[in-house]
Design a protein around this nucleic acid. Sequence first.
DNA 1: TTGACATATGAACACTTGTTCATATATTCA
DNA 2: TGAATATATGAACAAGTGTTCATATGTCAA
Lengths: 131, 131
Amino acid sequence: MPATTRPKPAQDPDVACADPHEHDPAALAQLATRLLDQRAVEAVSEVFKLLGDGTRVRLVDALTHGERCVCDLAMLLGLTESAVSHQLRLLRGARLVRVRRAGRMAYYSLDDHHVVGLLHDTRRHVEEGHA
Amino acid sequence: MPATTRPKPAQDPDVACADPHEHDPAALAQLATRLLDQRAVEAVSEVFKLLGDGTRVRLVDALTHGERCVCDLAMLLGLTESAVSHQLRLLRGARLVRVRRAGRMAYYSLDDHHVVGLLHDTRRHVEEGHA
DNA sequence: TTGACATATGAACACTTGTTCATATATTCA
DNA sequence: TGAATATATGAACAAGTGTTCATATGTCAA
C-alpha cells in the first residue's frame, strides 16, 4: 500500500498525523477500524442525550437517594406529574431507570449502577474547573 | 414542624415515600436539600448534552486514540472541516478537548481523563443489554 | 506580495425536543 | 356503580440544535 512516498515511522500506529502534517490515508484507514461502529455510537450518544437535560439529570439525581413515586418526584422537583412521567418514560427506554408498580402507584429507581458513576464523574469534571 | 400526624419512621431519611404512599412534605423538603443545586445541574447536563451527539461522540472516540488535527478528523469521520471545527469548539468550551496550535495546524486532544471513563462506562451500559 | 492552505466563524435552514394541555387507562374506596 | 386518585399518552407549539454555505483569519511557500 505504498501510496505515499513518505516512510511511516515505526512507532505507535495511532499517530498518523505526527509533527509534520501527513494526511496518511493508510494510517487513517487503520485507525478507522478501531473506532466505535455506528451502532455503538448511536447507543452511547442516546444515553448521553438523555442525561443532557436538566430535568432528567434532576430526576436521576433524586433517584440516587432511593426509590420514588411519580407524584413525589413531581412535588420534589416542582414539575407536573405529566412532565415527570414523560421523562421517566424516556429514561426507562434506555434502561436508566426501572419501575415497580404497586396498585396505582409507580415507584421508579435507578436501573444501572453505572449511572451513578456517570453523574459523579461528570460532576467532578465540572467542579474541577480546569486542570 | 408537626404538620403531619403520621409519625416519621426512624429509618433512613432518604425513604420518604415508603410502602404506603405518604407524600410527606417534611421528608421531601429534607431530601430536597441533598439534591444537586441548579448550577451543578446545568453544568452536568451541559456536559452530557455535548456528548449526546453522534458526531461529537465520534470525535471524542477518535481523540481517545491520540492527538489529531482538524483535517485528519474530518477525513477520518467523513465530515467537512467546518463541521468538525464547529463541534470541536463546543467540546473545547466545556474543556472536554484542548487544542495545540502549530503553524496553521490545530491539534486537538482530550482535555480530561474523566471523559474516557464516561465513554467507556456508557458503552458498557449499552452493551450490557439488561441486568 | 500573491496564492494556497488549515482553521475558524457567522448566518440560515431543516430538524429535533421538552413542555403543556387534554385525555386515556387503571386502581382504590365508598 | 361512581367518584377520586396516580399514572400514562398523544398532539402541538415554542425553543434549541447541527449542518451547510460563505467568508474571515492566520500561516506557509514562492
